[in-house]
């Protein structure tokens, strides 16, 4: 552990990132540029999230990493191990016991509490990017609050599919001011963004942007009056724990069309199973 400075980054870098985080918290939803460092992992694997986590982490923290809701996938395991080695902090898979949670593409099902920090990995921080390729122009649009273009995207969805087909990275408006990309979380998670007790930090390493939502911030998903926002999920209960109200992954079980729907949040699912809840396929395949 003594081979590295605490949490890998040097203190000056952490200081620079903390300044960006503070600025982001002061202006909710505003993308603060920061001098993103090279990290020992490829872009797209969470370099932004790792830098933010490193900057907010203290030796007393208990760290949790989730990747698409799961604690046991490659990305989650490697980042958790990275901080075990470079910071020596305690780690956990239990949402309620973690003080810093780094996440890729999900918000935990269990409501977070004050004192917790949720760090998102963000691939493309600019919600307007695919509509307006010029950075100079999108910055101007943010500063002048010209967000009509965002609705053009939703309009196109409805005209092509009959409903708003955007199902992840669904754009939100923060405190009636900035339009923000909530990172590629499913739109099922969008309602949890607003009024959350925990601090939410967003780090985009390649794009060199940090933005933030302080606790209890108003976050509204964009929509049309006659096509209101809807937090959608597969219309099934979890096959393992029977949960009706959690976000589900579809798992193909054989090549004859067999499939099952299970909670994407593994900690939530395991806790429910331990408490005696059971779904339709629990135990049958294990035998």
């Amino acid at each position: 552990m003594s081979d590295y400075n605490f949490a890998y980054l040097d203190e000056q870098t952490k200081r620079m990132i903390r300044r960006a985080i503070l600025k982001g918290l002061a202006i909710p939803g505003y993308q603060v540029p920061f001098a993103s460092r090279e990290m020992p992992m490829p872009y797209g694997w969470g370099t932004g999230g790792v830098q933010v986590s490193a900057a907010v982490m203290t030796p007393d923290d208990r760290f949790k990493v989730i990747d698409q809701g799961a604690d046991d996938t490659t990305n989650a395991v490697s980042i958790r191990t990275f901080f075990e080695r470079t910071a020596g902090v305690a780690t956990t898979t239990k949402t309620s016991q973690a003080s810093v949670i780094q996440t890729r593409h999900r918000i935990p099902e269990e409501p977070l509490s004050e004192g917790q920090i949720l760090v998102y990995q963000v691939p493309i921080p600019e919600p307007l990017r695919f509509l307006e390729p010029r950075e100079s122009e999108t910055r101007k649009m943010h500063s002048l609050e010209e967000y009509g273009l965002m609705h053009v995207k939703l309009y196109e969805d409805i005209s092509r599919h009959g409903h708003i087909a955007t199902s992840y990275a669904y754009p939100v408006k923060v405190e009636g001011r900035y339009v923000m990309d909530p990172s590629p979380i499913p739109k099922f998670d969008n309602p949890k963004l607003g009024d959350m007790a925990a601090i939410q930090l967003f780090g985009a390493g390649r794009e060199q942007r940090i933005y933030a939502l302080p606790p209890y911030t108003q976050v509204v998903s964009l929509d049309f009056e006659d096509h209101p926002f809807e937090a959608s999920k597969p219309d099934h209960p979890c096959a393992m724990c029977g949960a009706e109200n959690s976000y589900l992954d579809e798992v193909i079980t054989n090549d004859a069309g067999g499939r099952m729907f299970v909670c994407s949040d593994t900690d939530f699912c395991e806790a429910r199973q331990a408490a005696g809840h059971t779904g339709t396929m629990n135990g049958k395949d294990a035998a």
């Binding site: 010209e146 009509g148 273009l149 609705h151 053009v152 309009y155 409805i158 049309f224 009056e225 006659d226 096509h227």
Partner: peptide, 14 residues
Amino acid sequence: VGERLMAVGDRHYG
């Protein structure tokens, strides 16, 4: 055609 309408605050798809 709708972009200018949405830019001035029109929020009703129909």
